[in-house]
Design a protein around this nucleic acid. Structure first.
Length: 256
DNA sequence: ATGGCACCGCCCCGGTGA
C-alpha cells in the first residue's frame, strides 16, 4: 500500500511544525508542498531529515516554492516544466518507489481579464505538453497539487456567485478536462464523497466555520494506477489548527 | 458591498493570494 499527499502550506517557515506533526500522524510515501515561500538556502532540510524523510526543494523569494518530501529517495528530479521557461518556482517531480510523483503549484490567475490569467493559460498548456512526455515515460504517475481550478460547480460553495470568476472560468475548466483527456483521473471523484467537500477556505468571513470553500487541490492518477486506488480524502483537521494554512491536505491511498 | 485575513518584505504599508 502506498500513500501520496499534497498540501499548500502557505509559508513553510510558519507551518513547519504543523507539517512535521502531520507527517508523524500520516506516514505517507510522498508529500508535495506548495507555497513554501522560501529561498533554497532557507529550506529546513535538517528538520525534515530528522523526522525520517528525504526532501527535494525548489523555491524563490517571497512567493511560490514547492517541495517533494518522501520516505525513499526521489530519483530523476525535475524542477519546473521542461520546455516551458518560467521565472516562478511551481513544479517539482521525482520518482518514488516506482511512481512518478509530480507536485505543482498552478498559477492563481488573479482575474480572467488579467495578464496573470494569460500566464496561467500558457502555463497550463506548457504543463500539458510536458506531461504528455512524462506519461509516456512513466505509466505509474500521480499529478497533485494546488491546481487553482474548481473543476465543476459541485466543487464550489456558491457556484452562482463564482460563475465565470477565477478558478471557475470555462477556460480553466477546459484545461482541467484536457489533463483528464491525457488519461488521468481525479482520484477524489472515484469515491462517494460528502457533499460540500472543499480543500480551501478563505481566511476571512469565518469561511471555514461556515464551510464556504472551494475544491482546488487535486490528485490525478494515471490509468495504470487508477484500478489500484482504494481511497482519496481531504484532511480537514489541520485547518482547525491555531495558525492554519488556508488549504487542507489531500491524500490518496494506492493498493499494492 | 472589492471589504474581510494572512503572509512576505527592505518592514507600519503595499503586493499577492483565492
Amino acid at each position: 500500500m502506498k500513500k501520496f499527499a499534497t498540501w499548500n502550506v502557505n509559508s513553510l517557515s510558519i507551518r513547519l511544525p504543523q507539517v512535521l506533526d502531520w507527517l508523524a500522524a500520516h506516514p505517507v510515501d510522498a508529500l508535495v508542498l506548495q507555497e513554501t515561500k522560501l529561498t533554497d538556502d532557507k529550506f529546513p532540510t535538517m528538520e525534515i531529515g530528522e523526522a525520517g524523510y528525504q526532501v527535494q526543494w525548489f523555491g524563490q523569494k517571497t512567493y511560490n516554492g514547492v517541495a517533494l518530501i518522501s520516505r525513499e529517495t526521489a530519483t530523476d528530479v525535475v524542477k519546473n516544466i521542461t520546455g516551458f521557461a518560467d521565472e516562478q518556482a511551481r513544479v517539482i517531480a521525482g520518482t518514488v518507489g516506482g511512481v512518478r510523483v509530480i507536485g505543482g503549484y498552478f498559477p492563481n490567475g488573479q482575474a480572467p481579464d488579467s495578464e496573470k490569467f494569460v500566464y496561467k493559460m500558457n502555463w497550463l498548456t506548457g504543463l500539458r505538453n510536458w506531461l504528455t512526455e512524462e506519461m509516456k515515460a512513466h505509466e505509474n504517475l500521480v499529478l497533485m497539487g494546488d491546481f487553482n481550478i474548481a473543476p465543476e460547480d459541485r466543487d464550489v460553495y456558491d457556484p452562482i456567485a463564482w460563475a465565470g470568476q477565477i478558478h471557475c472560468t470555462p477556460q480553466e475548466r477546459e484545461h482541467f478536462q484536457q489533463l483528464i483527456g491525457l488519461g488521468l483521473t481525479d482520484a477524489f471523484r472515484l469515491f462517494e464523497q460528502p457533499p460540500k467537500s472543499w480543500s480551501w477556505w478563505d481566511y476571512r468571513n469565518l469561511a471555514f466555520r461556515k464551510n464556504q470553500g472551494l475544491r482546488i487541490d487535486h490528485i490525478l492518477v494515471s490509468e495504470a494506477l487508477k484500478p489500484r486506488v482504494t481511497a482519496c480524502e481531504i484532511d480537514k483537521l489541520p485547518r482547525k489548527n491555531e495558525r492554519p494554512s488556508d488549504h487542507a491536505p489531500v491524500i490518496v491511498t494506492i493498493d499494492g
